[in-house]
Design a protein around this nucleic acid. Structure first.
Lengths: 209, 209, 209, 209
DNA sequence: AATGAATGAGGCTTCATTCAT
DNA sequence: GATGAATGAAGCCTCATTCAT
């Protein structure tokens, strides 16, 4: 298991060619994860696809883990941004409406690059997240927890985790099975979320024949 | 990606020393998956932990994949048995009661060796399952689908997949977070399942403060 | 390089089941050499094709080399027998007629199982021949040398070696190229042999357009 | 049996350290073949003798086969060059004189590193030659065939193969037996070649006592 | 900074051979 | 005698990482 220092980028260049190489490496890694999965990801393949030498790759990252860790960091930040925006929209709405909005945002997030996000989640479990990423993850959870708490949900932290996990599970499975209609996935998932929250799934009930 | 012949055991000995080695190899592999994850699994580590030579390992399995494939086969068979029994018990009961029984069986299954079952699920996605295992998996799905169809659920196959996936997602997350009280997990999951199925989560609603 | 003791059979059983196993092993080895070449020859494949256990194989032979050594021994003995018979027939004939007879015998020998004899020749070069086999080989050479000496050929031992080698080379190449008409091969080879011996290739000259 | 891509070098470096490693690997392989034969040739032994790491070897060659294939390529190119030069010299001479010149060139070629060329010929039979090497081999054959056709030899392609094979056979055997005087070998071989071609071996006849 | 040649630990697999039953 | 399970040395190859230029 890689130590904390091995997942920090060596330097995060701010400009010029350096910056371009840095980004090229991350882009290459993301593409490989999306297209070939973790098995295809090696420092050599990343460098090659990025169009930089292996030496350059090591200038910016202390190792392979650091590259994936940065991808995790970014996708988490992206998720936080997406959900924050959804939270804005959800402010003041009913719990049911809020759930719908949050769910839609979450599904869109997973659907953007399903294989990539799947691989990154797998990787996340193996990696010791660095404090910054942990903080972002905690933020996401906290925001969601706060929302839930606002609606009087008991144990909002647990509920946040449960809802996140069950959504991920179902959405990934649906995408993996080849579904592409996000609205349909959401329509099936929403009643489960509402049920979890103790709300009558109501008129959207599509599961009874 | 391993071909079909790469995941069949080379010989499946029925008795004596031979049988003991075969089982020792599988046990060792399961332990490694449980404790160190797939990353720690190599033909060498398995043979060493099993207390057999690497040559012996290859007498029985054409490679690492075949070992994990056999573990998948077994855990799937076990799941089928567990769920079949639960189905027996659920026969004739109300949908809510049936859901409770099935859920309990499923959670017990995952909780038996959570890391192992998690790793095997991950591996399953990468492995071309052999026909026999596919058949078992299809049986499980079919049984669940039939149960759901019996209660008038629309698209029972999709519902079976959705419920399986969301349950797995939530249960794994809860176990991963260190929870050990399976009843509590079940109590939180059940309303989501009932909600998915269009039932009023009803009086068990523990999520509202 | 295997030592002398490793190429002697452990025991050469004279009767019964033992004898049958012993022969089955040799036959299996010969078939594998003929069909798959030396690369396909392993103690396990030989035992399997012979229908005996690997343990039994080692009862009769101290190792793989001993099996091939015995095949070499036998094919050499066969060659000696064939050539001796040809020598009988050649006795008293002209050098040209004698050459023709010897050549025909030699080509028939190689053609009987061309791949096998080819493989055994290759193996021969790697193996320290045991004294008995060496003696057989020496006999062949001596017989041929004596024949040549009888016709007044200078350095008959060298000539025997030269003629053997050039014949083998050409015959193997022709067979390898797919030729099956032994008479045609012989018709082309004979003038070379006669030329080597200082005889006018004469009326059989088929090589000038 | 190795596929076509398995016998192409991975990269053919043109200068510097890289080039030195590449050549060192080939030299080491040639030495091992010369001294210990194909049985002694392994990626490990080659790397060790070359003084490079196993990793470096695999930078340049995808496997053992690719190394030997390159050696075959080179020796064939060398042979083509040698024979082409001999053909120049033979232009316009009598068939007998031409044969002498070609034979001398061929013997010199084999004598340069007899064991190596022997091993490479053996290897050639097992390897699927790459198109480039095939082309070189075809060139050699074609040049020889053309020469023979020019003298009115029937079936020049067959004659080229026969003469090549019988020469190789005799020369290798003579070298293997320890002969070092190439002129003597040539003196014995020439009459056989002339005989094959239907020429009176003539006054050079040294084989009659 | 960038390059890419070099490294070698470590994973995979075969196969000749032994030995307890 | 016969069996076949077990062994492990030895070969194959990849890939993360270093370092001289």
């Amino acid at each position: 298991m890689p130590s904390a220092s091995q997942i920090q980028p060596r330097k995060t260049p701010r400009q010029g060619r350096s910056r371009a190489s840095y980004e090229a490496i991350l882009t290459a890694a993301a593409q490989i994860l999306e297209r070939q999965g973790a098995a295809g990801l090696s420092t050599n393949t990343v460098a090659e696809r990025a169009g930089v030498s292996i030496g350059t790759l090591y200038q910016y990252f202390p190792g392979k883990e650091a590259i994936t860790a940065e991808l995790v960091r970014r996708i988490k930040a992206q998720l936080l941004a997406d959900l924050s925006q959804a939270l804005e929209e959800a402010r003041g709405l009913s719990m049911r409406e809020a759930a719908e909005i949050m769910l839609a945002a979450s599904i869109r997030h997973h659907a953007r690059a399903p294989e990539l996000s799947r691989e990154l989640e797998r990787i996340e479990e193996l990696l010791p997240l660095d404090p910054e990423t942990e903080a972002v993850a905690a933020n996401i959870h906290a925001a969601l927890g706060a929302l839930l708490a606002g609606y009087g949900v008991a144990e909002p932290a647990v509920a946040a985790r449960d809802l996140t996990a069950l959504s991920k599970g179902m959405v990934h499975a649906a995408l993996f099975a080849g579904e592409t209609d996000l609205a349909r996935i959401e329509a099936r998932l929403l009643p489960a979320v509402l049920g979890y929250l103790g709300l009558d799934p109501g008129e959207r009930c599509a599961r009874r024949g």
